[in-house]
C-alpha cells in the first residue's frame, strides 16, 4: 500500500527571544535582543500508510503541533523532507490542502460570527464539493455527530463539545483521505469523546481514511490507534505498535493480597523465597503487592504458594496501565 505520509530527517527551529529583566534590561533590549535557536522538531523520520490510525504523543512542548503544522503546509521545515499524499505540503499548498482535513482543538477553524451551516456552505464552495457528494456524505456525518440542532447557531454561541463536533464535520466536508487531529478531545466530556471516537473509527473503516492524532488522553489512543509515535524534546523515541510498547515497558504484573491474619513482609519473602518476586506493603490498608514478571506460569505458582501458607481475604491481579507506562517513559526516558 502506498504511504500517505513520508517524513525524512524533518527539522524545525524557532528563534526564541528572551527579554532582560527590569528597566535597565528593557532599555538594552531596545538596541539588541537576546535570542537562541530552539529546535522544536529535531531530525525526525517516519512513514504512515494509507488507512492507518496513528497516535502522535509526547509531553507538552515536545513538538507535536509543530510537526502537524509542517505536515499540513502551514509551516515550512527548516530542513528535511515531507511528502504527504504525494505532494510537498508547502510548495503545492493550494492543491495539497484539498486532500487533507485538519482540526486544531485549541483553535477554531470555523468563522466565528456566522451560523454553522453557513460556514459549511461556504466551505463546500471553497473545496468545490458537488451538491450530490455533499448530500450523500455530509447528511451522514451530521447525523452521526448529532449536530443537526446546532446548524443554525453562530459558532461563538456553541459550547466546546458542540463546537468540536462541528469542527470535525467541517474538516470532512470534502471527504479527505487524510485527517490531522491536534488534540481533538481536549476539554470534552466522556460522552462526546466516545461519540467522536466511534465516528473516527467509522470513517476510517468506511473510506480507509488515514488519521494522525495527537492527544494527551491515552484512552483515545487505546481506543483508536494500533500504532503510536512518541516524541520527546523534538525527537522520536518510540515508533511501533501500542501493544509492544506495553510488553516492552510494562513492568510486569502486580498482584495485590489482603490477608485475614497479621502478616509481616518477612513472612511473605520467606514463603516465596524460591521465586523472582518483589513485595511491597501499603501500611495503611494492609495491602501487600507482589510485583512479578508477566508470565502466567510464574503468577499461578506464586499465588499457589501464598494461598497454601496464609488465609486470604482478597486477591487482585493488575496490569500496568498504558498511562503508567507512558508516565514512566516521560519520567525516566527510554533506556
Amino acid at each position: 500500500m502506498k504511504d500517505a505520509i513520508t517524513v525524512r530527517n524533518l527539522k524545525k527551529e524557532f528563534k526564541a527571544y528572551s527579554s532582560r529583566s527590569g528597566l535597565k534590561g528593557a532599555f538594552r533590549d531596545l538596541l539588541t535582543r537576546n535570542y537562541k535557536i530552539v529546535p522544536a522538531v529535531n531530525d525526525i523520520s517516519f512513514n504512515v500508510k494509507q488507512g492507518e490510525m496513528v497516535g502522535y504523543i509526547g509531553e507538552n512542548g515536545a513538538g507535536k503541533s509543530t510537526t502537524i503544522k509542517m505536515l499540513t503546509g502551514i509551516l515550512t521545515p527548516t530542513s528535511g523532507g515531507v511528502i504527504v499524499n504525494g505532494m510537498n505540503p508547502h510548495r503545492d499548498r493550494e492543491k495539497f490542502v484539498s486532500t487533507i482535513g485538519v482540526v486544531f482543538g485549541q483553535r477554531s477553524q470555523l468563522w466565528w460570527d456566522i451560523a454553522v451551516q453557513e460556514s459549511f456552505r461556504l466551505l463546500k464552495k471553497v473545496y468545490k464539493v458537488s451538491d450530490e457528494q455533499y448530500e450523500s456524505h455530509m447528511a451522514h456525518v451530521i447525523k452521526t455527530l448529532d449536530i443537526e440542532p446546532l446548524l443554525d447557531k453562530p459558532v461563538r454561541k456553541l459550547s466546546l463539545g458542540q463546537r468540536m463536533r462541528c469542527e470535525l464535520a467541517a474538516a470532512l466536508i470534502h471527504n479527505p483521505p487524510l485527517l490531522f487531529l491536534d488534540e481533538p478531545t481536549i476539554g470534552l466530556d466522556v460522552l462526546v469523546k466516545l461519540r467522536i471516537r466511534e465516528f473516527l473509527k467509522e470513517i476510517n473503516k468506511k473510506y480507509n481514511t488515514t488519521i494522525l492524532l495527537t492527544t494527551h488522553d491515552l484512552t483515545d489512543i487505546e481506543a483508536l490507534c494500533e500504532r503510536v509515535v512518541m516524541l520527546d524534546d523534538g525527537k522520536v523515541i518510540y515508533d511501533g505498535a501500542l501493544k509492544s510498547l506495553k510488553e516492552k515497558w510494562g513492568e510486569g504484573k502486580e498482584i495485590e493480597f489482603q490477608f485475614l491474619e497479621e502478616v509481616e513482609l518477612a513472612d511473605l519473602n520467606k514463603i516465596t523465597a524460591s521465586s523472582e518476586v518483589k513485595w511491597e506493603k501499603d501500611e495503611k490498608k494492609a495491602i501487600f503487592t507482589a510485583v512479578v514478571e508477566d508470565d502466567d506460569e510464574l503468577i499461578s505458582l506464586l499465588i499457589a504458594k501464598v494461598v497454601a501458607a496464609l488465609k486470604i481475604k482478597d486477591i487482585n491481579i493488575k496490569e500496568t496501565s498504558t498511562e503508567e507506562i507512558i508516565r514512566n517513559i516521560y519520567d525516566r526516558g527510554i533506556s
Binding site: S19, L23, A26, F27, D29, L30
Partner: peptide
Amino acid sequence: IRIRFLMMLAYRT
C-alpha cells in the same frame, strides 16, 4: 505608570 512604560519599551520598533 512604570508597567505601561515597560510595556511600551517592548514594542520598540
